[in-house]
Design a protein around this nucleic acid. Structure first.
Lengths: 159, 159
DNA sequence: CATTATATTCCATTATATTCCATTTTTATC
DNA sequence: GATAAAAATGGAATATAATGGAATATAATG
Protein backbone atom coordinates (compact mmCIF):
# COMPACT_ATOMS: atom_id res chain seq x y z
CA UNK A 1 0.00 0.00 0.00
CA UNK A 2 1.52 3.32 -1.03
CA UNK A 3 1.60 5.96 1.67
CA UNK A 4 1.04 9.69 1.16
CA UNK A 5 0.04 9.33 -2.44
CA UNK A 6 -2.89 10.53 -4.42
CA UNK A 7 -4.99 13.61 -4.63
CA UNK A 8 -8.09 14.62 -2.66
CA UNK A 9 -10.43 17.48 -3.23
CA UNK A 10 -12.08 18.97 -0.14
CA UNK A 11 -12.98 22.28 1.45
CA UNK A 12 -12.12 24.58 4.33
CA UNK A 13 -14.89 24.93 6.92
CA UNK A 14 -16.05 28.20 8.45
CA UNK A 15 -13.40 27.92 11.17
CA UNK A 16 -10.49 27.28 8.84
CA UNK A 17 -10.36 23.54 9.36
CA UNK A 18 -9.71 20.84 6.80
CA UNK A 19 -10.99 17.31 7.05
CA UNK A 20 -8.55 14.74 5.73
CA UNK A 21 -9.73 11.73 3.79
CA UNK A 22 -9.71 8.37 5.61
CA UNK A 23 -6.84 7.27 3.38
CA UNK A 24 -4.61 10.17 4.43
CA UNK A 25 -5.71 9.88 8.06
CA UNK A 26 -4.55 6.30 8.06
CA UNK A 27 -1.16 7.19 6.61
CA UNK A 28 -0.61 9.67 9.42
CA UNK A 29 -2.07 7.45 12.12
CA UNK A 30 0.54 4.85 11.26
CA UNK A 31 3.32 7.34 12.16
CA UNK A 32 1.80 8.99 15.21
CA UNK A 33 -0.80 11.73 15.10
CA UNK A 34 1.72 14.53 15.76
CA UNK A 35 2.38 16.39 12.56
CA UNK A 36 4.14 19.57 11.52
CA UNK A 37 2.54 22.20 9.34
CA UNK A 38 5.11 23.94 7.18
CA UNK A 39 4.56 26.81 4.76
CA UNK A 40 6.29 26.23 1.44
CA UNK A 41 7.66 29.08 -0.69
CA UNK A 42 5.60 27.64 -3.55
CA UNK A 43 2.54 28.99 -1.75
CA UNK A 44 1.14 25.89 -0.12
CA UNK A 45 1.20 24.32 3.33
CA UNK A 46 2.91 20.97 3.81
CA UNK A 47 1.87 18.51 6.48
CA UNK A 48 4.66 16.18 7.54
CA UNK A 49 4.86 13.51 10.20
CA UNK A 50 6.98 14.93 13.00
CA UNK A 51 9.93 12.60 12.43
CA UNK A 52 10.12 13.61 8.77
CA UNK A 53 10.27 17.27 9.71
CA UNK A 54 12.89 16.68 12.38
CA UNK A 55 15.02 14.90 9.82
CA UNK A 56 14.74 17.99 7.60
CA UNK A 57 16.02 20.23 10.37
CA UNK A 58 18.53 17.96 12.05
CA UNK A 59 21.80 19.32 10.70
CA UNK A 60 21.87 22.67 12.49
CA UNK A 61 24.70 22.65 15.05
CA UNK A 62 25.26 25.36 17.67
CA UNK A 63 22.41 27.62 16.56
CA UNK A 64 22.73 30.13 19.42
CA UNK A 65 26.27 31.16 18.59
CA UNK A 66 25.59 31.39 14.88
CA UNK A 67 22.43 33.43 15.50
CA UNK A 68 24.47 36.01 17.40
CA UNK A 69 26.87 36.43 14.49
CA UNK A 70 24.91 36.12 11.27
CA UNK A 71 21.81 37.80 9.94
CA UNK A 72 21.51 35.24 7.16
CA UNK A 73 21.44 32.49 9.72
CA UNK A 74 18.85 34.31 11.79
CA UNK A 75 16.70 34.58 8.68
CA UNK A 76 16.90 30.85 8.14
CA UNK A 77 15.91 30.15 11.75
CA UNK A 78 13.11 32.63 11.34
CA UNK A 79 11.90 31.07 8.14
CA UNK A 80 11.63 27.59 9.56
CA UNK A 81 10.55 28.78 12.99
CA UNK A 82 7.76 31.05 11.87
CA UNK A 83 6.53 28.82 9.09
CA UNK A 84 6.48 25.54 10.94
CA UNK A 85 4.14 24.58 13.72
CA UNK A 86 3.19 21.42 15.52
CA UNK A 87 -0.35 20.20 15.25
CA UNK A 88 -2.29 17.15 16.16
CA UNK A 89 -4.79 15.60 13.83
CA UNK A 90 -8.09 15.42 15.70
CA UNK A 91 -10.05 12.24 16.30
CA UNK A 92 -12.30 13.21 13.41
CA UNK A 93 -9.33 13.70 11.12
CA UNK A 94 -9.42 17.47 11.10
CA UNK A 95 -6.49 19.86 11.11
CA UNK A 96 -6.78 23.53 11.93
CA UNK A 97 -4.64 25.87 9.90
CA UNK A 98 -3.45 29.00 11.73
CA UNK A 99 -4.89 32.09 10.04
CA UNK A 100 -1.46 33.22 8.86
CA UNK A 101 -0.79 29.90 7.20
CA UNK A 102 -4.19 29.88 5.59
CA UNK A 103 -3.46 33.25 4.13
CA UNK A 104 -0.04 32.13 2.91
CA UNK A 105 -1.63 29.31 0.95
CA UNK A 106 -4.43 31.49 -0.36
CA UNK A 107 -7.12 29.44 1.38
CA UNK A 108 -10.44 31.07 2.18
CA UNK A 109 -13.18 29.60 4.42
CA UNK A 110 -15.51 27.70 2.18
CA UNK A 111 -12.95 27.52 -0.62
CA UNK A 112 -11.88 24.52 -2.67
CA UNK A 113 -8.74 22.79 -1.49
CA UNK A 114 -6.52 20.02 -2.82
CA UNK A 115 -4.75 17.62 -0.48
CA UNK A 116 -1.79 16.38 -2.49
CA UNK A 117 0.40 13.43 -1.54
CA UNK A 118 4.16 13.98 -1.87
CA UNK A 119 5.38 10.55 -0.70
CA UNK A 120 6.72 11.90 2.62
CA UNK A 121 3.58 13.75 3.66
CA UNK A 122 0.83 15.78 2.07
CA UNK A 123 0.51 19.32 0.82
CA UNK A 124 -2.50 21.58 1.05
CA UNK A 125 -3.07 23.74 -1.99
CA UNK A 126 -5.81 26.09 -3.02
CA UNK A 127 -7.40 24.41 -6.04
CA UNK A 128 -6.55 27.35 -8.25
CA UNK A 129 -2.87 27.34 -7.35
CA UNK A 130 -2.67 23.59 -7.64
CA UNK A 131 -3.85 23.68 -11.24
CA UNK A 132 -1.11 26.19 -12.04
CA UNK A 133 1.52 24.18 -10.22
CA UNK A 134 0.50 21.07 -12.05
CA UNK A 135 0.78 22.87 -15.36
CA UNK A 136 4.24 24.14 -14.47
CA UNK A 137 5.52 20.70 -13.52
CA UNK A 138 4.18 19.24 -16.76
CA UNK A 139 5.73 21.98 -18.87
CA UNK A 140 9.07 21.61 -17.10
CA UNK A 141 9.11 17.89 -17.77
CA UNK A 142 8.10 18.45 -21.37
CA UNK A 143 11.00 20.85 -22.00
CA UNK A 144 13.38 18.55 -20.20
CA UNK A 145 12.24 15.66 -22.34
CA UNK A 146 12.74 17.64 -25.53
CA UNK A 147 16.27 18.58 -24.57
CA UNK A 148 16.98 15.01 -23.71
CA UNK A 149 15.87 13.96 -27.17
CA UNK A 150 18.08 16.63 -28.76
CA UNK A 151 21.11 15.65 -26.78
CA UNK A 152 20.46 12.07 -27.72
CA UNK A 153 20.73 13.09 -31.40
CA UNK A 154 24.01 14.93 -30.79
CA UNK A 155 25.68 12.04 -29.10
CA UNK A 156 28.02 10.00 -31.31
CA UNK A 157 26.87 6.72 -29.92
CA UNK A 158 23.39 6.11 -28.69
CA UNK A 159 22.56 4.82 -25.25
CA UNK B 1 6.29 18.90 19.81
CA UNK B 2 8.31 21.68 18.24
CA UNK B 3 9.37 24.50 20.54
CA UNK B 4 9.48 28.17 19.64
CA UNK B 5 7.73 27.71 16.35
CA UNK B 6 4.76 29.31 14.70
CA UNK B 7 3.38 32.74 14.30
CA UNK B 8 1.02 34.66 16.58
CA UNK B 9 -0.75 37.91 16.04
CA UNK B 10 -1.41 40.09 19.10
CA UNK B 11 -1.31 43.67 20.24
CA UNK B 12 0.53 45.99 22.59
CA UNK B 13 -1.66 47.20 25.44
CA UNK B 14 -1.91 50.80 26.61
CA UNK B 15 1.05 50.27 28.94
CA UNK B 16 3.38 48.77 26.37
CA UNK B 17 2.87 45.17 27.42
CA UNK B 18 2.54 42.10 25.21
CA UNK B 19 0.62 38.97 26.11
CA UNK B 20 2.21 35.79 24.82
CA UNK B 21 0.10 32.92 23.55
CA UNK B 22 -0.22 29.85 25.82
CA UNK B 23 1.89 27.89 23.37
CA UNK B 24 4.82 30.31 23.63
CA UNK B 25 4.37 30.66 27.40
CA UNK B 26 4.74 26.92 27.74
CA UNK B 27 7.89 26.85 25.64
CA UNK B 28 9.47 29.42 27.94
CA UNK B 29 8.12 27.89 31.13
CA UNK B 30 9.89 24.68 30.25
CA UNK B 31 13.24 26.52 30.28
CA UNK B 32 12.72 28.79 33.28
CA UNK B 33 10.80 32.03 33.21
CA UNK B 34 13.92 34.21 33.05
CA UNK B 35 14.36 35.55 29.56
CA UNK B 36 16.56 38.05 27.78
CA UNK B 37 15.20 40.76 25.55
CA UNK B 38 17.59 41.57 22.74
CA UNK B 39 17.23 44.18 20.02
CA UNK B 40 18.08 42.81 16.57
CA UNK B 41 19.64 44.90 13.80
CA UNK B 42 16.71 43.73 11.64
CA UNK B 43 14.48 46.05 13.66
CA UNK B 44 12.75 43.62 15.98
CA UNK B 45 13.18 42.49 19.58
CA UNK B 46 14.17 38.90 20.25
CA UNK B 47 13.15 37.07 23.42
CA UNK B 48 15.53 34.25 24.29
CA UNK B 49 15.60 31.87 27.25
CA UNK B 50 18.50 32.94 29.44
CA UNK B 51 20.60 29.84 28.71
CA UNK B 52 20.33 30.44 24.96
CA UNK B 53 21.50 34.00 25.36
CA UNK B 54 24.40 32.93 27.58
CA UNK B 55 25.42 30.42 24.92
CA UNK B 56 25.45 33.24 22.39
CA UNK B 57 27.77 35.31 24.52
CA UNK B 58 29.89 32.64 26.15
CA UNK B 59 32.27 32.39 23.22
CA UNK B 60 33.75 35.83 23.75
CA UNK B 61 37.24 35.19 25.16
CA UNK B 62 39.35 37.75 26.99
CA UNK B 63 37.04 40.74 26.52
CA UNK B 64 39.06 43.11 28.71
CA UNK B 65 42.20 42.88 26.64
CA UNK B 66 40.38 43.09 23.33
CA UNK B 67 38.31 46.05 24.47
CA UNK B 68 41.51 47.98 25.11
CA UNK B 69 42.67 47.38 21.56
CA UNK B 70 39.71 47.37 19.20
CA UNK B 71 36.95 49.82 18.49
CA UNK B 72 35.05 47.20 16.53
CA UNK B 73 35.13 44.94 19.53
CA UNK B 74 34.03 47.71 21.88
CA UNK B 75 31.11 48.40 19.59
CA UNK B 76 30.14 44.77 19.65
CA UNK B 77 30.24 44.71 23.46
CA UNK B 78 28.18 47.85 23.48
CA UNK B 79 25.67 46.43 21.04
CA UNK B 80 25.02 43.37 23.17
CA UNK B 81 25.29 45.29 26.44
CA UNK B 82 22.90 48.10 25.64
CA UNK B 83 20.49 46.04 23.61
CA UNK B 84 20.05 43.09 25.92
CA UNK B 85 18.14 43.08 29.15
CA UNK B 86 16.80 40.48 31.53
CA UNK B 87 13.09 40.17 32.03
CA UNK B 88 10.71 37.81 33.69
CA UNK B 89 7.52 36.65 32.04
CA UNK B 90 4.61 37.42 34.38
CA UNK B 91 2.19 34.83 35.72
CA UNK B 92 -0.30 35.90 33.06
CA UNK B 93 2.27 35.53 30.32
CA UNK B 94 2.92 39.21 29.79
CA UNK B 95 6.23 40.87 29.05
CA UNK B 96 6.89 44.59 29.36
CA UNK B 97 9.15 46.08 26.75
CA UNK B 98 11.33 48.98 27.86
CA UNK B 99 10.35 52.13 25.95
CA UNK B 100 13.70 52.24 24.12
CA UNK B 101 13.26 48.70 22.87
CA UNK B 102 9.69 49.35 21.87
CA UNK B 103 10.85 52.27 19.81
CA UNK B 104 13.64 50.22 18.23
CA UNK B 105 11.09 47.71 17.01
CA UNK B 106 8.63 50.36 15.88
CA UNK B 107 5.96 49.24 18.33
CA UNK B 108 3.28 51.67 19.42
CA UNK B 109 0.73 51.14 22.23
CA UNK B 110 -2.36 49.65 20.68
CA UNK B 111 -0.44 48.57 17.58
CA UNK B 112 -0.49 45.18 15.87
CA UNK B 113 2.36 42.88 16.75
CA UNK B 114 3.62 39.52 15.49
CA UNK B 115 5.27 37.03 17.82
CA UNK B 116 7.47 34.95 15.54
CA UNK B 117 9.16 31.68 16.50
CA UNK B 118 12.79 31.25 15.48
CA UNK B 119 13.43 27.79 16.91
CA UNK B 120 15.65 29.09 19.74
CA UNK B 121 13.26 31.77 21.03
CA UNK B 122 10.74 34.21 19.66
CA UNK B 123 10.93 37.59 17.99
CA UNK B 124 8.59 40.52 18.40
CA UNK B 125 7.89 42.40 15.21
CA UNK B 126 5.57 45.22 14.33
CA UNK B 127 3.07 43.68 11.94
CA UNK B 128 4.03 46.05 9.20
CA UNK B 129 7.73 45.23 9.40
CA UNK B 130 7.05 41.52 9.65
CA UNK B 131 5.09 41.52 6.42
CA UNK B 132 8.05 43.17 4.69
CA UNK B 133 10.50 40.71 6.19
CA UNK B 134 8.29 37.83 5.16
CA UNK B 135 8.05 39.16 1.62
CA UNK B 136 11.81 39.47 1.42
CA UNK B 137 12.41 35.90 2.60
CA UNK B 138 9.78 34.58 0.21
CA UNK B 139 11.17 36.45 -2.77
CA UNK B 140 14.65 35.18 -1.95
CA UNK B 141 13.40 31.61 -1.87
CA UNK B 142 11.44 32.11 -5.06
CA UNK B 143 14.49 33.31 -7.00
CA UNK B 144 16.57 30.50 -5.57
CA UNK B 145 13.94 28.00 -6.68
CA UNK B 146 13.75 29.39 -10.19
CA UNK B 147 17.50 29.11 -10.64
CA UNK B 148 17.36 25.57 -9.39
CA UNK B 149 14.69 24.73 -11.97
CA UNK B 150 16.78 26.28 -14.76
CA UNK B 151 19.85 24.35 -13.80
CA UNK B 152 17.75 21.21 -13.73
CA UNK B 153 16.92 21.79 -17.39
CA UNK B 154 20.56 22.30 -18.32
CA UNK B 155 21.69 19.07 -16.77
CA UNK B 156 22.28 16.33 -19.33
CA UNK B 157 20.73 13.64 -17.26
CA UNK B 158 17.92 14.20 -14.83
CA UNK B 159 17.97 13.39 -11.13
C1' DC C 1 -32.55 -0.01 -4.57
C1' DA C 2 -30.74 -0.68 -0.02
C1' DT C 3 -26.94 -0.16 2.82
C1' DT C 4 -22.66 1.63 4.23
C1' DA C 5 -19.34 4.97 4.39
C1' DT C 6 -17.98 9.62 4.06
C1' DA C 7 -18.68 14.69 4.13
C1' DT C 8 -20.67 18.68 5.88
C1' DT C 9 -23.12 21.42 9.04
C1' DC C 10 -24.53 22.83 13.44
C1' DC C 11 -24.30 23.34 18.34
C1' DA C 12 -22.39 23.03 23.05
C1' DT C 13 -18.35 23.53 25.53
C1' DT C 14 -13.91 25.10 26.43
C1' DA C 15 -10.21 28.05 25.97
C1' DT C 16 -8.23 32.37 24.90
C1' DA C 17 -7.96 37.41 24.39
C1' DT C 18 -9.04 41.87 25.68
C1' DT C 19 -10.60 45.17 28.79
C1' DC C 20 -11.08 47.17 33.08
C1' DC C 21 -10.04 48.02 37.85
C1' DA C 22 -7.48 47.88 42.18
C1' DT C 23 -3.06 48.07 44.23
C1' DT C 24 1.62 49.28 44.48
C1' DT C 25 5.55 51.82 43.23
C1' DT C 26 7.80 55.75 41.66
C1' DT C 27 8.45 60.64 40.90
C1' DA C 28 7.77 65.39 41.53
C1' DT C 29 6.57 69.19 44.31
C1' DC C 30 5.83 71.52 48.52
C1' DG D 1 11.20 64.59 54.31
C1' DA D 2 6.27 64.15 53.46
C1' DT D 3 2.42 64.17 50.52
C1' DA D 4 0.10 63.96 46.26
C1' DA D 5 -0.09 62.69 41.60
C1' DA D 6 1.11 59.79 37.95
C1' DA D 7 2.51 55.65 36.13
C1' DA D 8 3.14 50.90 36.16
C1' DT D 9 1.92 46.40 37.61
C1' DG D 10 -0.93 42.41 38.70
C1' DG D 11 -5.22 40.33 38.68
C1' DA D 12 -9.90 39.38 37.60
C1' DA D 13 -14.01 39.50 34.68
C1' DT D 14 -16.28 39.59 30.41
C1' DA D 15 -16.52 38.94 25.55
C1' DT D 16 -14.89 36.55 21.68
C1' DA D 17 -13.08 32.78 19.21
C1' DA D 18 -11.68 28.04 18.78
C1' DT D 19 -12.52 23.26 19.59
C1' DG D 20 -14.72 18.77 19.81
C1' DG D 21 -18.59 16.09 19.08
C1' DA D 22 -22.82 14.67 17.23
C1' DA D 23 -26.35 14.61 13.77
C1' DT D 24 -27.85 14.97 9.21
C1' DA D 25 -27.16 14.92 4.39
C1' DT D 26 -24.75 13.25 0.48
C1' DA D 27 -22.28 10.06 -2.18
C1' DA D 28 -20.53 5.59 -3.11
C1' DT D 29 -20.89 0.68 -3.12
C1' DG D 30 -22.85 -3.89 -3.44
Amino acid sequence: MLAFCGLDRCSVDANGRIKLSPRVMEDFARRGSDVVLHCLPEGAVAVYPEDIYLAMRSAVPDPAKRAAESMVFRRSLRRFGAWSQSQRISAQGRITLPPEYREHAGLVPGGDVMVVGNEIGVEIWSRERWLEEQKMILEHERVKGEREMESDLETDRGV
